[in-house]
Structures are given as C-alpha cells and as structure tokens.
Design a protein around this nucleic acid. Structure first.
Length: 288
DNA sequence: ACTCAGGTATTAC
DNA sequence: GTAATACCTGAG
C-alpha cells in the first residue's frame, strides 16, 4: 500500500504523548525517534509531532486524512472546553495544564469493548500485550516502513477463537468473558450498528451491561471512548483516589461510594464530566 | 514467597 | 439490594 500523509497545521490542542498515555487506548507505541505508531481500523499511522504542526503518515486502504480527522476528532474545539473546565476550580485548572493537548479519541466500538474487558484487574503492559496477541493471531497483516503490523480482529475473525485459544494468548480468567461477548455481538444479541444510533446514553449502557465482563466501569469507558459520551464519568481506582483527595477527604478511601462520586462529578462538571475525568485521572496517575 | 494491577461474576446474607 | 471473595498472569 502507498504511504499517505496528512499535516495538521497549526496544531492546536494536540499532544501525542498525553493523548496516547492518558489511559484511553492501548495500541500506540512510542518509537526511539519520539514518534508514536499505532493501528487504527485498517491503517497503520505514525504521528510525527513538530513544534507547530503534526504530521500523520501511514498506510491505509482508505483516505488517511478522513481516518485521522475522525479518530482524533480534529473538528472538535478543545479551547472552549478547557476554558469552561478551568473555571470550575484550581484542581481542574492544574490537571488541564498538566495534560494539555489531550484529546478523547473516537475509537472502534468492538475493539474498545474487548480491550476494556481485558483491562479488568490487570496492568497496562499486560493489557497491551494481550491485545497485541489477539491482533497477531486474528487480525490482518499490514506492512509499514518495513515492519509488520496487525489490525484488531473483526467480530467474525475473533469468534474463531476458542476459550482455550484465548487462554493461551494470555487472557487469563477473562478468556470466557471475551469469548461470550464476541459471540453475543456476532449473533447480534448486541447489535453494534443498531446501538450506535441510540440517542439515549442510558439505553446504550443498559445494553453494554448485558455483555459478559462488562460492569459499570468498563461500560462507562466504552461510552466515553467509543460512543463519545463526554458526560460519562468512569470511576476506577485512580478517579476514586483523586476525587477523594481533592473533595471528599474521607480517611478511608475504600469507603467512598461510587454514587457519591458520580453525584459530585455531575454537579461539578455536568456535560463535561468525562473530559474532566480524563484530565484528573491522568494527572493523578502521573503525579501520585 | 508475596503483593499488586483501569473490575466483574458469583455467592451469601 | 449490599458485602465479601475468587480470579489468570507476570512484573517488582
């Protein structure tokens, strides 16, 4: 495939490290030269960030620019969002300053579902490794710059894997969950094409929660990262920690209920809760 | 050897 | 409904 290029200039609100390391995605890897390379749909993309522009270079069956604009949601203006959030309080202002250039990606629904099922009670290096294994075994090869990359498997392709196959790829106890969920999607018991048109976020959440391995936290991550519901506020250990430290100040963090955190997030951040979550999560995880 | 990591499912009140 | 507990795996 021919190499395509798209240049974003001027770059505003784009920081590749913050975008790829803030915890929303698992398939981007830092190269020795400082660039990031990742697989998006059927494309391999290299992100080359300069002082005043971002160069996207890669191979794709489709138009690279279209993929990039959609995936990085480049038409969304983060200036206004950051302004609004910064005014809420100094904590948020600080976290936005730290994670400046974060963008919530518009990720593939199936990939996000499977990836976050795998994330349960797991660590990032291992999550990434498992997803890479799935792609190597059930995805499609793509050559770029003399190296081979693999697309994330399609529903059909991944449904070829048995529970034992998945266990062999390192999924551990999540093998059965991925197996069952993939089958449910294959049989349209969870109809992605239909559900992605649902307007009501609660209706989508309800459907997501029927999937094996999808609980409240994973469902919220899928809503935020694949359905772009920016008001959804996923609560994991880091978010619980940061919300307690900043606002609730309960001596026993484990005693803080999710209901309390959700309520607080909704009151403080409203429609932008998901974005606030991402800044706070990243800030807390990187700064302790 | 032992704990821990982007939670969920299961079981038992 | 809510609380306790097990769960693959591999890195530190």
């Amino acid at each position: 495939m021919k190499v395509q290029e798209y240049i974003l200039k001027p770059k505003n609100d784009f920081n590749s490290m913050h975008i790829f390391e803030c915890g929303q995605c698992f398939r981007w890897n830092l190269q020795d030269n400082g660039n990031y390379i990742g697989v998006v749909k059927n494309s391999v993309i290299e992100v080359i960030e300069k002082d005043d522009e971002v160069i996207f270079r890669g191979v794709s069956e489709d138009n690279l620019k279209d993929i990039v604009v959609d995936y990085f949601n480049l038409n969304k203006d983060y200036g206004e969002i950051k302004n609004k959030l910064s005014k809420i309080d100094d904590y948020l202002k600080e976290s936005i300053k730290f994670g400046n250039g974060i963008r919530i990606l518009n990720q593939d629904i199936f990939e996000t579902i499977i990836s976050f099922i795998i994330s349960a009670n797991n660590n990032i290096p291992r999550i990434k490794k498992i997803i890479e294994n799935l792609s190597k075994n059930y995805g499609k090869e793509i050559e770029y710059d003399g190296k081979t990359y693999y697309t994330f498997p399609t529903v059909k392709s991944l449904s070829k894997a048995t529970v034992a196959d998945l266990r062999n790829l390192g999924l551990g106890f999540r093998d059965k969950r991925v197996y069952t969920t993939t089958r449910m999607i294959l049989k349209n018991e969870f109809d992605i094409e239909k559900i992605k048109n649902f307007k009501d976020t609660e209706m989508i959440r309800e459907e997501l929660l029927k999937l094996d391995g999808v609980g409240p936290k994973v469902a919220d991550c899928i809503l935020l990262f694949a359905f772009n519901r920016y008001d959804v506020f996923p609560i994991d250990v880091w978010v619980r920690r940061v919300m307690n430290d900043l606002y609730i100040k309960n001596l026993d963090e484990s005693k803080v209920s999710k209901v309390e955190i959700k309520k607080l997030a909704e009151e403080k951040y409203g429609e932008l809760a998901g974005l606030a979550q991402q800044y706070l999560f990243y800030w807390k995880r990187e700064n302790g």
